[in-house]
């Protein structure tokens, strides 16, 4: 129990540190967003009008007062879920903008990642079990080859082949005419629109799991407990699953949780290629438009996601590997 309590405490402490850094970094950066915006509106060479800057500050809600009072105010606003207004989608609050995009990404990413992990691990485990057979060579060589390709390049290929040439799937956007919500036509459109992005991700993402699982499991197959399991006359299936794969899975599980947290980054290019209305595209827009509140919130969301994934990985590892529980408590 101590192990789990420690892990949760560590998570909370890191989360606090992340929030604080997220607060500090923009304030330590040179330049004033209001000035930059006014400059951009007014043109490069014109004089800055202090009144305009002041007005811009008021509009953006740029804070004043001491750093400490700003900080407490910031924490208070965070606690109330108030992340400010987006510049790009002014005057919509950031939370609303993100709220619309997040489900697209979460569903796309979670589905493809879970599928990749399952497919990759099973393929890798089977390749290891039948190592040095034709199956193993095909899987290993195939993975290594596919691993050199980039998801966005595959995305372009898919758009060309399945989208334009064959016309089986829509190539951009998230849906067409249906009203967003939980209704048949919308879900159908959403699924057909997310098919190509998902496929683009699915070609590449399982590869890490295939190779990782295969290599760890081959190492595990050399362990004494596998030899003993064979000497015990247990059925192959039991040795492969309960002994070899069960142990080989441990590093993959940590990797998987981490991949879920960090996947936003990888989805940006694919989302952009398909003009998919998710967080990746949103992040691209935020960078392009210097939309500080949106960008900051996305950053916070991503880091919190990674941290949360880390916590889940640690907790799962504790459940799966009894040695970890003792070693650290």
């Amino acid at each position: 129990m101590r192990y789990f309590a420690r892990k949760v405490a560590f998570f909370l402490a890191t989360l606090w540190a992340v929030v604080t850094l997220n607060f500090l970094i923009p304030r330590l950066q040179p330049g004033d967003p209001a000035e930059i915006m006014v400059k951009r509106l007014a043109g490069k060479d014109s004089q800055l009008d202090p009144a305009q800057v002041q007005a811009m500050r008021a509009m953006l809600g740029t804070p004043d007062g001491s750093l400490w009072s700003q900080y407490t105010g910031y924490l208070g606003e965070l606690a109330h879920g108030n992340f400010g207004l987006s510049y790009t989608y002014y005057p919509f609050p950031v939370t609303e903008v993100i709220g619309q995009a997040i489900w697209w990404t979460v569903v796309l990413v979670v589905v493809t990642q879970v599928l990749s992990f399952a497919v990759g691990t099973v393929l890798g485990a089977y390749a290891a079990w039948r190592r040095n057979t034709r199956f193993d060579s095909v899987v290993t060589l195939g993975s290594t080859f596919l691993g050199t390709l980039q998801p966005f390049w595959i995305a372009l290929l898919l758009i060309y082949l399945l989208g334009y040439t064959l016309g089986w799937f829509p190539t951009s956007g998230g849906y067409e005419a249906a009203t967003p919500g939980f209704n048949g036509p919308f879900i159908q459109e959403a699924v057909s629109h997310s098919f190509l992005p998902a496929l683009a991700l699915l070609v590449v993402t399982p590869i890490g799991w295939v190779l990782g699982m295969r290599n760890t499991m081959i190492m595990n197959l050399g362990e004494d407990y596998i030899r003993l399991a064979r000497a015990k006359g247990l059925p192959d299936r039991r040795i492969a699953l309960g002994y070899a794969a069960r142990n080989a899975l441990l590093p993959s599980v940590t990797g998987f949780a981490l991949a879920l947290g960090g996947v936003l980054g990888g989805a940006i290019l694919v989302e952009t290629a398909f003009d998919y209305p998710g967080l990746g595209r949103l992040m691209g827009e935020a960078v392009e438009n210097k939309d500080y509140p949106l960008l900051q919130t996305l950053m916070l969301l991503t880091t919190a996601g990674v941290l949360l994934a880390n916590l889940v990985a640690d907790l799962m590892y504790g459940v799966l590997d009894p040695r970890a529980r003792r070693a650290q408590s």
Binding site: D224, Y225, L228, A231, G242, Y243, L320, D321, P322, R323
Partner: peptide
């Protein structure tokens, strides 16, 4: 049946 050489590792750790 058998007991292996230095079988520190002969039991499945998990």
């Amino acid at each position: 049946s058998t007991v292996f050489q230095s079988s520190m590792n002969a039991l499945n750790p998990v």
